[in-house]
Every structure is written in structure tokens, then in C-alpha cells.
């Protein structure tokens, strides 16, 4: 492959591994070596990889909780508003605020709010949809959705140096590709 010399045109270096365990080990070593702007790519979730790369746990559970609370309280408010304020009907003197009858819809709205938060929260935090990504320029990266495991150290990492980083990755018994921007 033609070496790309201008740093501005390089997204990073991509190392290819055969096994998830090798990727996990490489991630630990890269983190120990001080690299931070990097990510692992795998066809299956590799447990512990995210921590090994020094990524923070996601705030998704909190988002889902908030989504559920908003859905549930909005649902209950709608029922209360409709039955007590907007359109009160006296049915044989029964209470207008008949909360037991409001439970099923409140529950459904809670579930709906939480589910939307989980789905769209996951996409938003992951920055998806994202049709273009520099990694898709590397033909071998197609296998990241089949049977290969990748580690990409990005050029914007302060420690990144084309030759030294390449040597580091090759020292991990990986095939190394340059990723054009």
C-alpha cells in the first residue's frame, strides 16, 4: 500500500487480529502505552474490551430511567387532565380522579417512553446513523462484521507517530493498515 505521509490525510492505523482475546490484550497494552484516541472493532461484543480501552460506562441506563419517568408522568397527567379538568363527567357520584383505572395506560406510556429512550438513546450516544466513516475505506475492514477483530489508533492521539505506532502495533503480531481520512 502506498504510504500516506501527510498527517492531515490519515485517520489512523488499523491493526487486524484473528481472535478477540488478542484484541483485548492489544487494547490493554495500547492503553498502558498511553494511547487514548482509539477504539476496538469486533464481530461480537468482546467483554471487557471497552474497559480495557479506558472507555467510560455509558449513561444509557439513566437516560432510560428518565424516558420512563417522562412517559409515565405525561401519561398520567393526560388521563388526569382529561377526566378531571377538561371533561369531567359525573357518573353516579363516582370520583373523577379514579386512579386505579388510570394504571394500565400509565404503565403502557412508561414502557413506551423507556423503550424510545433506550433505542434512540443508544443510537444518539453512538453517533448513528453515520453513513460514512474513514474505516470503511479499508477493504479488510469488511471482515469486522464476520470473523476479524480490529484495533484502530487514531492520528489525533497526541502520542500518535506513524512509524512508532506502526512498530508498536506490529509488535502485537497484527497486520497493520493505514486508514485514509
Amino acid at each position: 500500500m502506498q504510504a500516506i505521509s501527510k498527517p492531515g490525510m490519515l485517520h489512523g492505523l488499523l491493526a487486524e487480529f484473528e481472535q478477540g482475546e488478542s484484541l483485548l490484550e492489544a487494547a490493554r497494552q495500547a492503553h498502558a502505552a498511553g494511547y487514548r484516541k482509539m477504539d476496538g472493532y469486533s464481530p461480537i461484543p468482546v467483554h471487557g474490551l471497552s474497559q480495557a480501552l479506558g472507555q467510560k460506562p455509558s449513561g444509557l441506563p439513566l437516560l432510560v430511567l428518565i424516558g420512563g419517568i417522562i412517559g409515565g408522568s405525561a401519561g398520567y397527567f393526560m388521563l388526569y387532565y382529561a377526566s378531571v379538568i377538561s371533561y369531567p363527567i359525573n357518573v353516579g357520584g363516582r370520583p373523577l380522579h379514579s386512579w386505579p383505572a388510570f394504571i394500565p395506560i400509565t404503565f403502557e406510556m412508561t414502557v413506551l417512553g423507556a423503550a424510545f429512550a433506550a433505542f434512540f438513546g443508544m443510537l444518539a450516544l453512538n453517533g448513528l446513523p453515520r453513513p460514512y466513516h474513514p474505516l470503511f475505506n479499508v477493504p479488510a475492514f469488511n471482515l469486522a462484521s464476520r470473523n476479524r477483530f480490529f484495533l484502530c489508533i487514531e492520528a489525533r492521539d497526541p502520542l500518535f507517530d506513524l512509524n512508532r505506532t506502526r512498530q508498536f502495533l506490529e509488535g502485537l503480531q497484527a497486520r497493520v493498515y493505514e486508514v485514509p481520512e
Binding site: G40, Y41, S50, L53, R130
Partner: peptide
């Protein structure tokens, strides 16, 4: 697929979700 590329950060949030 919306640009899914199996990144570790993505998988982590994905599994949580």
C-alpha cells in the same frame, strides 16, 4: 445498518440498551 461498525463503545451501549 446506519453505519454500524462494531466498535467497542458501540457494543457496550448496544448491549446495555
Amino acid at each position: 445498518a446506519m453505519g454500524w461498525r462494531g466498535s467497542a463503545a458501540h457494543w457496550q451501549r448496544y448491549e446495555t440498551a
